[in-house]
Protein backbone atom coordinates (compact mmCIF):
# COMPACT_ATOMS: atom_id res chain seq x y z
CA UNK A 1 0.00 0.00 0.00
CA UNK A 2 1.40 3.38 -0.98
CA UNK A 3 0.59 6.92 0.02
CA UNK A 4 -0.42 9.23 -2.82
CA UNK A 5 1.56 12.46 -2.86
CA UNK A 6 0.56 13.79 -6.28
CA UNK A 7 -2.86 14.00 -7.91
CA UNK A 8 -1.35 12.87 -11.24
CA UNK A 9 -0.35 9.55 -9.67
CA UNK A 10 -3.86 8.58 -8.58
CA UNK A 11 -5.43 10.01 -11.73
CA UNK A 12 -3.22 7.79 -13.92
CA UNK A 13 -3.96 4.71 -11.78
CA UNK A 14 -7.71 5.34 -11.98
CA UNK A 15 -7.60 5.96 -15.75
CA UNK A 16 -5.97 2.56 -16.16
CA UNK A 17 -8.87 0.92 -14.29
CA UNK A 18 -11.72 2.62 -16.12
CA UNK A 19 -12.87 0.15 -18.73
CA UNK A 20 -16.00 -1.69 -19.77
CA UNK A 21 -17.54 -3.70 -16.95
CA UNK A 22 -15.44 -2.22 -14.13
CA UNK A 23 -17.17 -2.23 -10.76
CA UNK A 24 -16.59 0.86 -8.69
CA UNK A 25 -17.97 2.88 -5.82
CA UNK A 26 -15.62 5.75 -6.54
CA UNK A 27 -17.55 8.95 -7.08
CA UNK A 28 -14.80 11.09 -5.56
CA UNK A 29 -14.10 14.20 -7.60
CA UNK A 30 -10.71 15.64 -8.51
CA UNK A 31 -11.20 18.16 -5.70
CA UNK A 32 -12.06 15.45 -3.12
CA UNK A 33 -8.89 13.56 -4.03
CA UNK A 34 -6.74 16.70 -3.86
CA UNK A 35 -8.01 17.53 -0.35
CA UNK A 36 -7.07 14.00 0.79
CA UNK A 37 -3.61 14.32 -0.79
CA UNK A 38 -3.04 17.69 0.91
CA UNK A 39 -3.83 16.01 4.23
CA UNK A 40 -1.55 13.03 3.54
CA UNK A 41 -4.53 10.71 4.00
CA UNK A 42 -4.81 9.09 0.57
CA UNK A 43 -3.38 5.63 -0.12
CA UNK A 44 -3.73 3.05 -2.86
CA UNK A 45 -3.24 -0.65 -3.27
CA UNK A 46 -3.04 -2.10 -6.75
CA UNK A 47 -3.61 -5.82 -7.22
CA UNK A 48 -4.30 -8.05 -10.19
CA UNK A 49 -8.08 -7.75 -9.72
CA UNK A 50 -8.17 -3.95 -9.59
CA UNK A 51 -7.34 -0.87 -7.55
CA UNK A 52 -8.21 0.01 -3.97
CA UNK A 53 -8.19 3.66 -2.89
CA UNK A 54 -8.01 4.14 0.87
CA UNK A 55 -8.73 7.29 2.82
CA UNK A 56 -7.04 7.24 6.23
CA UNK A 57 -9.35 8.18 9.11
CA UNK A 58 -6.86 7.38 11.92
CA UNK A 59 -8.88 4.49 13.39
CA UNK A 60 -9.76 2.98 10.00
CA UNK A 61 -9.61 3.35 6.24
CA UNK A 62 -12.54 4.20 3.99
CA UNK A 63 -12.29 2.13 0.83
CA UNK A 64 -13.17 3.07 -2.72
CA UNK A 65 -12.62 0.33 -5.25
CA UNK A 66 -12.25 -0.40 -8.93
CA UNK A 67 -12.68 -4.13 -9.50
CA UNK A 68 -12.06 -5.53 -12.94
CA UNK A 69 -11.81 -9.20 -11.99
CA UNK A 70 -13.90 -10.58 -9.14
CA UNK A 71 -12.13 -13.94 -9.28
CA UNK A 72 -8.98 -12.33 -7.84
CA UNK A 73 -8.77 -12.01 -4.08
CA UNK A 74 -7.41 -9.06 -2.13
CA UNK A 75 -4.37 -10.63 -0.50
CA UNK A 76 -3.29 -7.49 1.36
CA UNK A 77 -3.65 -7.48 5.14
CA UNK A 78 -4.41 -3.95 6.34
CA UNK A 79 -3.09 -2.72 9.69
CA UNK A 80 -6.35 -0.85 10.39
CA UNK A 81 -10.01 -1.72 9.98
CA UNK A 82 -11.38 -1.06 6.51
CA UNK A 83 -14.90 0.19 5.76
CA UNK A 84 -16.54 0.06 2.34
CA UNK A 85 -19.97 1.24 1.22
CA UNK A 86 -21.64 -0.39 -1.77
CA UNK A 87 -24.51 1.54 -3.28
CA UNK A 88 -27.17 -0.15 -5.39
CA UNK A 89 -29.56 1.50 -7.81
CA UNK A 90 -33.32 0.91 -7.67
CA UNK A 91 -34.18 -2.73 -8.44
CA UNK A 92 -30.54 -3.53 -9.07
CA UNK A 93 -28.96 -4.84 -5.90
CA UNK A 94 -25.24 -5.15 -6.48
CA UNK A 95 -25.06 -8.56 -4.82
CA UNK A 96 -22.08 -9.69 -6.84
CA UNK A 97 -19.85 -7.01 -5.31
CA UNK A 98 -21.30 -7.49 -1.80
CA UNK A 99 -20.58 -11.23 -2.04
CA UNK A 100 -17.08 -10.47 -3.33
CA UNK A 101 -16.29 -8.35 -0.27
CA UNK A 102 -17.88 -10.91 2.07
CA UNK A 103 -15.52 -13.48 0.53
CA UNK A 104 -12.67 -11.08 1.44
CA UNK A 105 -13.83 -11.29 5.10
CA UNK A 106 -15.81 -8.06 5.16
CA UNK A 107 -19.01 -8.18 7.24
CA UNK A 108 -22.13 -6.02 6.94
CA UNK A 109 -22.44 -3.39 9.67
CA UNK A 110 -25.25 -1.14 8.46
CA UNK A 111 -27.75 -0.88 5.63
CA UNK A 112 -28.95 2.48 4.41
CA UNK A 113 -31.81 3.76 2.29
CA UNK A 114 -32.00 6.99 0.32
CA UNK A 115 -34.82 9.50 0.38
CA UNK A 116 -35.47 12.17 -2.24
CA UNK A 117 -37.41 15.41 -2.02
CA UNK A 118 -38.48 16.67 -5.41
CA UNK A 119 -41.25 19.08 -4.47
CA UNK A 120 -40.39 22.57 -5.76
CA UNK A 121 -42.90 24.43 -3.63
CA UNK A 122 -41.84 24.85 -0.06
CA UNK A 123 -44.66 26.35 1.91
CA UNK A 124 -43.35 26.16 5.45
CA UNK A 125 -41.44 29.28 6.41
CA UNK A 126 -41.18 28.27 10.05
CA UNK A 127 -37.51 28.75 10.63
CA UNK A 128 -35.68 30.70 13.34
CA UNK A 129 -33.36 33.66 13.80
CA UNK A 130 -31.07 31.39 15.79
CA UNK A 131 -30.24 29.57 12.56
CA UNK A 132 -27.19 30.93 10.82
CA UNK A 133 -24.47 29.86 8.45
CA UNK A 134 -21.66 28.36 10.48
CA UNK A 135 -18.55 30.51 10.74
CA UNK A 136 -15.03 29.11 10.87
CA UNK A 137 -14.66 29.87 14.59
CA UNK A 138 -17.56 27.46 15.27
CA UNK A 139 -16.17 24.71 13.03
CA UNK A 140 -14.21 23.04 15.83
CA UNK A 141 -17.33 22.72 18.03
CA UNK A 142 -19.38 21.47 15.08
CA UNK A 143 -16.72 18.84 14.42
CA UNK A 144 -16.87 17.71 18.06
CA UNK A 145 -20.67 17.43 17.99
CA UNK A 146 -20.57 15.37 14.77
CA UNK A 147 -17.98 13.06 16.30
CA UNK A 148 -20.05 12.64 19.48
CA UNK A 149 -23.29 11.89 17.65
CA UNK A 150 -22.35 9.85 14.59
CA UNK A 151 -20.60 6.51 14.37
CA UNK A 152 -16.91 7.01 13.62
CA UNK A 153 -16.92 4.19 11.04
CA UNK A 154 -20.27 4.55 9.34
CA UNK A 155 -21.30 8.12 10.16
CA UNK A 156 -19.50 9.70 7.17
CA UNK A 157 -17.81 12.19 9.50
CA UNK A 158 -15.69 14.55 7.41
CA UNK A 159 -12.09 15.29 8.29
CA UNK A 160 -11.68 18.57 10.16
CA UNK A 161 -10.02 20.09 7.08
CA UNK A 162 -12.93 19.02 4.87
CA UNK A 163 -15.45 20.38 7.36
CA UNK A 164 -13.68 23.75 7.39
CA UNK A 165 -13.90 23.87 3.59
CA UNK A 166 -17.61 23.00 3.81
CA UNK A 167 -18.07 25.82 6.35
CA UNK A 168 -16.25 28.23 4.03
CA UNK A 169 -18.47 27.12 1.14
CA UNK A 170 -21.66 27.81 3.12
CA UNK A 171 -22.61 24.15 3.51
CA UNK A 172 -23.04 24.13 7.28
CA UNK A 173 -25.96 25.73 9.13
CA UNK A 174 -26.16 25.87 12.89
CA UNK A 175 -28.90 26.61 15.39
CA UNK A 176 -27.10 28.68 17.96
CA UNK A 177 -28.17 30.93 20.79
CA UNK A 178 -25.80 30.69 23.75
CA UNK A 179 -24.61 27.30 22.48
CA UNK A 180 -24.81 25.29 19.28
CA UNK A 181 -27.97 23.20 19.59
CA UNK A 182 -28.39 21.89 16.07
CA UNK A 183 -26.34 21.33 12.93
CA UNK A 184 -27.28 20.87 9.30
CA UNK A 185 -24.38 19.81 7.10
CA UNK A 186 -25.12 19.64 3.38
CA UNK A 187 -23.52 19.15 0.02
CA UNK A 188 -24.90 21.15 -2.86
CA UNK A 189 -24.48 21.75 -6.55
CA UNK A 190 -26.82 23.50 -8.96
CA UNK A 191 -28.35 20.12 -9.82
CA UNK A 192 -28.71 18.31 -6.55
CA UNK A 193 -28.19 18.64 -2.87
CA UNK A 194 -27.72 16.09 -0.13
CA UNK A 195 -28.09 16.32 3.63
CA UNK A 196 -24.87 14.88 5.01
CA UNK A 197 -25.69 15.34 8.71
CA UNK A 198 -28.65 16.73 10.61
CA UNK A 199 -28.32 16.63 14.37
CA UNK A 200 -29.87 18.26 17.41
CA UNK A 201 -27.84 17.93 20.62
CA UNK A 202 -29.30 15.56 23.19
CA UNK A 203 -30.97 17.89 25.69
CA UNK A 204 -32.49 20.11 23.00
CA UNK A 205 -34.45 17.45 21.13
CA UNK A 206 -38.22 17.48 20.57
CA UNK A 207 -38.31 21.28 20.51
CA UNK A 208 -38.72 21.61 16.74
CA UNK A 209 -35.08 22.57 16.05
CA UNK A 210 -34.58 19.91 13.35
CA UNK A 211 -37.74 21.04 11.55
CA UNK A 212 -36.60 24.67 11.65
CA UNK A 213 -33.18 23.69 10.30
CA UNK A 214 -34.67 21.70 7.43
CA UNK A 215 -37.10 24.51 6.60
CA UNK A 216 -34.15 26.90 6.38
CA UNK A 217 -32.50 24.45 4.00
CA UNK A 218 -35.60 24.12 1.84
CA UNK A 219 -35.94 27.88 1.68
CA UNK A 220 -32.32 28.61 0.82
CA UNK A 221 -31.08 25.74 -1.33
CA UNK A 222 -32.41 25.73 -4.83
CA UNK A 223 -31.41 22.31 -6.13
CA UNK A 224 -33.82 20.37 -8.32
CA UNK A 225 -33.32 17.20 -6.33
CA UNK A 226 -32.66 16.94 -2.62
CA UNK A 227 -31.59 13.64 -1.14
CA UNK A 228 -30.64 12.17 2.22
CA UNK A 229 -29.29 8.78 3.25
CA UNK A 230 -30.40 7.28 6.52
CA UNK A 231 -30.07 3.96 8.35
CA UNK A 232 -32.63 1.41 7.19
CA UNK A 233 -33.41 0.68 10.84
CA UNK A 234 -33.38 4.31 11.97
CA UNK A 235 -37.15 4.67 12.24
CA UNK A 236 -36.95 7.98 14.06
CA UNK A 237 -34.98 9.66 11.24
CA UNK A 238 -37.06 7.95 8.56
CA UNK A 239 -40.32 9.22 10.07
CA UNK A 240 -38.87 12.72 10.33
CA UNK A 241 -37.85 12.87 6.67
CA UNK A 242 -41.15 11.38 5.53
CA UNK A 243 -42.97 14.06 7.53
CA UNK A 244 -40.83 16.66 5.74
CA UNK A 245 -41.95 15.39 2.33
CA UNK A 246 -39.12 13.00 1.47
CA UNK A 247 -39.88 9.71 -0.30
CA UNK A 248 -37.75 6.59 -0.73
CA UNK A 249 -36.17 6.71 -4.20
CA UNK A 250 -35.03 3.08 -4.38
CA UNK A 251 -31.28 3.63 -3.89
CA UNK A 252 -29.87 1.48 -1.09
CA UNK A 253 -26.45 0.82 0.33
CA UNK A 254 -24.62 -1.68 2.47
CA UNK A 255 -21.63 -0.72 4.61
CA UNK A 256 -19.18 -3.56 5.21
CA UNK A 257 -16.24 -3.67 7.57
CA UNK A 258 -13.11 -5.76 7.76
CA UNK A 259 -11.06 -5.99 10.92
CA UNK A 260 -7.48 -4.84 10.59
Amino acid sequence: MKRVDRYETISALISKQIRKGVKTNNFLTENDLKIEIENNSLYYYEYDGGLLILRDRTTHYILNYYINDITKNIEKIFEKDVVVEIVSRPNNNDNEVIKYFEKQNFACCIERVRYAHTCDEIVDNDTADAIQLCKTNDAEKVYEILKENFDSYTGCIPTKERLIKDVENGNVYIYKDENIKGILHIDKSKISSEIKHLIVVENEREKGIATKLINKYFNEVNAKKKTVWTGKENNCARKFYEKCGYELDGYTSVVLKKKG
Binding site: S11, I14, I18, R19, G21, L28
Partner: peptide, 14 residues
Amino acid sequence: GELVDTFSIEIGVE
Protein backbone atom coordinates in the same frame (compact mmCIF):
# COMPACT_ATOMS: atom_id res chain seq x y z
CA GLY B 1 -16.22 2.32 -19.33
CA GLU B 2 -18.04 1.81 -22.63
CA LEU B 3 -16.47 4.92 -24.19
CA VAL B 4 -12.95 3.88 -23.19
CA ASP B 5 -13.50 0.46 -24.73
CA THR B 6 -15.35 1.52 -27.88
CA PHE B 7 -13.28 4.57 -28.82
CA SER B 8 -9.91 3.35 -27.45
CA ILE B 9 -9.42 6.47 -25.35
CA GLU B 10 -8.35 7.17 -21.78
CA ILE B 11 -10.64 9.12 -19.49
CA GLY B 12 -9.45 10.52 -16.16
CA VAL B 13 -11.22 11.50 -12.95
CA GLU B 14 -10.89 15.17 -13.93
